[in-house]
């Protein structure tokens, strides 16, 4: 079961960067949503990205996944620069993400949504049938781990918000990614649901999956992440050990000043 979730081990030094985003700037007209951010995402860890509303967190994820063009800066994935690589190829290289708002395909069932993720077309070299079998096993495994077994035939609109979010996460991890980007995966969830997800993410890390987690829940970030970035107004305002970062004046000010979320 684990061999499905963990990407084939590559012979690389332990310190290898999975993602290297250098001096990334993304502007929307006059709005400097991201303005010179550098992130070095090393293998096998959970990285956190914290920041008040509108600070540019989702935008940088969009830039990293090549859904919006960069104004400047460079991107490297597993040592490969990908400034001109289209999103779908990036997905095939092993980059997966979830969105801040649920973006499931409403016409499809839960199972079909997850199957879509299993279809990234990376199982080249194996026979079609073998690939199909492997895909099926993998989907079943992920459905099991995310506790979605009883919802497989449902369509997203019939599901509670928390379950919808879980389907999104399932759809991303079924891709057997090398890097998983999560944009506020537990927003709107109950306390116990949050804990389940946090446990799932830690579990995935234990299997070697590198993650970049965007979240407002400071406590969860401190508990879950190995390394934390904090940003405001499109710039990094701190980075390092999570427990330390959240205590710096800049972060404190940014967060307290701009409305610490009641549900955080």
């Amino acid at each position: 079961m684990t061999q499905h979730t963990v990407p084939p081990t590559v012979a690389e030094p332990a310190s290898a960067l999975v993602l290297d985003a250098r001096d990334v700037a993304i502007h929307f007209g006059g709005v400097k949503a991201v303005d010179g951010v550098t992130m070095e995402i090393a293998e096998g860890k959970i990285f956190g990205l914290l920041g008040p509303n509108g600070s540019g967190k989702s935008t940088i994820l969009a830039g990293i996944t090549r859904l919006v063009p960069l104004k400047s800066g460079s991107l490297t994935f597993d040592g490969r620069p990908y400034d001109d690589v289209p999103t779908f190829k990036l997905a095939r290289w092993g980059m997966a993400r979830t969105f801040q708002t649920v973006r499931l395909l409403g016409d499809l069932t839960v199972e079909q949504n997850i199957l879509l993720g299993a279809d990234v077309g990376r199982s080249s070299g194996v026979s079609r049938r073998a690939a199909a079998t492997e895909r099926k096993e993998c989907v079943a495994d992920v459905i099991d781990r995310t506790g979605l077994a009883k919802f497989v035939k449902w369509t997203p609109s019939e599901l509670s918000y928390g379950v919808q979010r879980r389907v999104e996460i399932a759809r991303a991890i079924v891709m057997q990614p090398r890097l998983l980007l999560l944009d506020e995966p537990v927003a709107g969830m109950t306390k116990s649901e949050k804990l389940e997800i946090a446990a799932l993410l830690s579990d995935l890390r234990a299997q070697g999956l590198t993650q970049l987690l965007v979240e407002h829940d400071v406590q969860m970030m401190v508990d879950t992440c190995d390394h934390l970035y904090a940003m405001n107004f499109g710039k990094l305002i701190g980075e390092g050990v999570p427990a330390d970062v959240v205590k710096t004046p800049a972060v404190q000010e940014a967060y307290m000043g701009k409305g610490w979320r009641a549900d955080a």
């Binding site: 859904l67 190829k89 997905a91 973006r103 016409d107 879509l116 279809d119 759809r171 891709m175």
Partner: peptide, 24 residues
């Protein structure tokens, strides 16, 4: 079919589709 499913997903959300590795 997988390609049919993929095609439908483009229609609903092309960004998600491309993130699923679908070559639009």
């Amino acid at each position: 079919s997988r390609s049919g499913l993929a095609l439908r997903s483009i229609g609903v959300d092309s960004e998600v589709a491309s993130l699923m590795g679908i070559d639009q």
